[in-house]
Design a protein around this nucleic acid. Sequence first.
DNA 1: ATTAAATTTGGACAAGTGTCCGATTTTATG
DNA 2: CATAAAATCGGACACTTGTCCAAATTTAAT
Lengths: 204, 204
Amino acid sequence: MSTVAPDKLQARADRKTRKRQEKKDLIARSAMQALQELGYANTSLRDIAARADLSLGMLHYYFEDRTQLILHCVSLYKAAFISGLEEALQEANDRESVVNALANALATSIVEDASTHRLWYDIRSQALFDPAFRPMVRELEAALISVVETAGKKTGSARPGTGEFGYALIDGVFRYQMQNQITGTPRDYESLAREMKAVLETLF
Amino acid sequence: MSTVAPDKLQARADRKTRKRQEKKDLIARSAMQALQELGYANTSLRDIAARADLSLGMLHYYFEDRTQLILHCVSLYKAAFISGLEEALQEANDRESVVNALANALATSIVEDASTHRLWYDIRSQALFDPAFRPMVRELEAALISVVETAGKKTGSARPGTGEFGYALIDGVFRYQMQNQITGTPRDYESLAREMKAVLETLF
DNA sequence: ATTAAATTTGGACAAGTGTCCGATTTTATG
DNA sequence: CATAAAATCGGACACTTGTCCAAATTTAAT
């Protein structure tokens, strides 16, 4: 027989699951380090455990399997990057400031988080082969498309299909910039932002 | 002492190496099947050997290691796809026919060779982590950029930087189309070509 | 036809993989 | 403080991986 009130039990259970969620995030953030450095194909659970200073069993205590762990990492990427874009867009309302805000946010992220985006593009490629990654990729891209659409509405250039089409265009340039940043010829913020502006101005 | 003329020896050696090259291509074409289906991360040499009906040792007899084999596969992709684009562009000289020729060639390839391009995008992502793949990716992209540049010259819209910028834009849309084709919502040739035209017309 | 070279085989090998589990330690509850 | 539950560890496990090699077979040259 239980001697405690049911709402107290409830509160206790909630605290548990919240703590567990926080720990999962903590592990995922550590795991991200390894994944960003080595890439999906070359990162083993042992690599992750070593760099995060965790035991191997821990990873399985908190995540069902390797795929779930990686998915959790990507969902953290999403929260950070997308909400950053949405914030940048919130203050801008006329055409010029929308273009500037987006170009600025994107170029900044290229300079600062290139290796995070590298992991994203790696996972997105994986999703082409492994269906387990597709819902997450779809969700993330839907959010990015939605960002482009709100930008389109704010600039008054919102034809149907602008979201997907615009996303594809912007992503093409963004990815190419990221690739150059990492594999060879890094450019400075100014140059990146100028190029990104060029895309946005033909689009909106 | 050799009793044969030196030029005869030369011819013999040439025939050997040519035959060896042809066998390498044959193996690579078989390997491509497995790679296209499973992706870089999930394709083992045994997968390749099984699907190509080859013994495991054969692969190492003709290729130094796994990476060299995959690189050879990608170089076949290059030869096929790029020369197709160049041919399509050869007959076109005014703006309209250049746009049409490119849009047609690209949309056709999306419909027919989606899973080949999937492999390409997979390898390109790998190159972000493994430097061994970078020279080949760079070479292939340089060729694609050059295609965009000649298209720019033919349409009279060749500012500096058109090649890289245009490649990035086109690739963004092309990749997104490929992804939709494979993971969910395949579209027909007409719709794909129309969208590709839209990109090319803002570019040129 | 004989001999040398090239090709092909199938398996051995060590290293690395994801997964799982019993034992131990830490934390929270009464 | 005592006790149950949660958390953590480190290694065992079965399996896959790329690589390599000695032997067998096929091909080509004299």
